[in-house]
Amino acid sequence: MGAPGPEGAAGVPPAIEIRGLVKDFAVGLRGLRLRAVDHVSLTVRPGEVFGLLGPNGSGKSTTIKLLLGLLEPTAGGCAIFGVPSGRVEARRDVGYLPEAPNFYRFLTGRELVTFYGRLCGLAGSGLRSKLEEVVALVGLAGAADRRVGTYSKGMLQRIGLAQALVHDPRLLILDEPTAGVDPVGSAEMAELILALKARGKTVLITSHLLGQIEELCDRVAILDRGGLVAEGEVAELAGATGRLSFETEVLPPEEIAALRAWLESRGRRLEAVAPARRRLEEVFRTHVGRGPRDTEGGR
């Protein structure tokens, strides 16, 4: 993986480089194989938020596990900041939040983050201040002394993020961080990710909920059945369609007719008139309070 990526010219290795990655799983008794990742090549530049999108089973989590050296690739390879995955050094600068995370139920939130911090080489007052910082950052300060076994799904995602951030890694890999989390929680997660980006972190995030990702990511890649089907800037992929839409206050029918006539007089057509609706998610977010809710142990 020594070959320089697009950023190689400046001497800065890409945050993530995936080259021709293939992963087959043996399924069934007769040596039947399932190709979960099919010749994927990707580059994530330092400092960007990169979205890995795709339906369930498209190979997003498998790609991440290969990247972290938790699985062995069938072919191809990947590297993190230029260090090949599979080497312990590659994981030094990475924080990982697994899909539907699960943590030691018998520890409290604070004990959990302390344990991971120690594993990453933190100790003493450095560890203590980092611990308080990340626990506060994810909004769990009020619940940090409760057993992880009593946490809700959203709280598990938050403590998972705290654990991923404790050693201040340059790269964060978040596998479906908003799956099973309510809209307010997901909006907070999105804000957190943007705050991390502002601090110069690189973020790889996967999701099958496209709407949430769109506002967050600089670039995205779309996987389908293990293969890469699209990759590029969000603005480029999901951007301008070459069409225009208007939004105004409610107009009486005769004014709409006049508008239509005016357009037609210039050889244009008014193609759609519809009342603008609020999305249910906005309604939910305006009515449900923000801030720590399930985190304080009771409402």
Binding site: V88, R91, N102, R105
Partner: peptide, 14 residues
């Protein structure tokens, strides 16, 4: 089975 090994082995741990 609880997938805690996932988080643990994703740290710089041999």
């Amino acid at each position: 089975e609880n997938r805690t090994a996932l988080t643990l082995l994703a740290k710089p741990v041999w």
